[in-house]
């Protein structure tokens, strides 16, 4: 008897079992792919005072300086994501926003009057907590 045939996995499972293991794994995988497929944004729109001042493709890594209401703000694109980098906002000197990459995502520095928005489906947003707005 070869060692392989004595192995626990082989002993403990029938042919149906093994098919089941494989098929269920595939099913879960495809479910995950289906649920998480989101159109990746193609470019980011930079707005100053609600007017588009810049459009950058997310495919090219770069850092662009934009004039904000309180001084210069750096917009950094890297590996399909974008963020606000090193902006001197009164309450946060030299800080940066988080990365955004999904279509429709946006990030803003309100005092700088700068808004970054990734293009793409401007409609449905899946928020995991299912809230439409937050009162604060």
């Amino acid at each position: 008897m070869s060692n392989k045939e004595n192995a626990l996995l082989w002993r403990a499972t029938t042919l149906s079992d093994r098919w089941l293991i494989l098929l269920s794994a595939l099913l879960i995988g495809s479910l995950a792919v289906y649920l998480f497929r989101r159109p990746a944004g193609e470019e980011v729109i930079v707005e100053r005072h609600n007017e588009i001042v810049l459009r950058l493709p997310l495919s090219r890594n770069q850092v662009v300086k934009v004039q904000g209401a309180l001084g210069e703000v750096a917009v950094q694109v890297q590996e399909g994501r974008v963020r606000l980098l090193e902006y001197a906002s009164p309450r946060m000197i030299g800080t940066r926003s988080g990365w955004i990459s999904r279509a429709g995502a946006m990030v803003a520095c309100v005092p700088c009057d700068i808004l970054l928005r990734v293009t793409g489906e401007n409609g449905a947003q899946t928020s995991t907590n299912g809230l439409d707005a937050i009162s604060r």
Binding site: D17, I21, S24
Partner: peptide, 9 residues
Amino acid sequence: GFGVVGVSL
């Protein structure tokens, strides 16, 4: 035709 593992799964 499932065995123990199949049933468990």
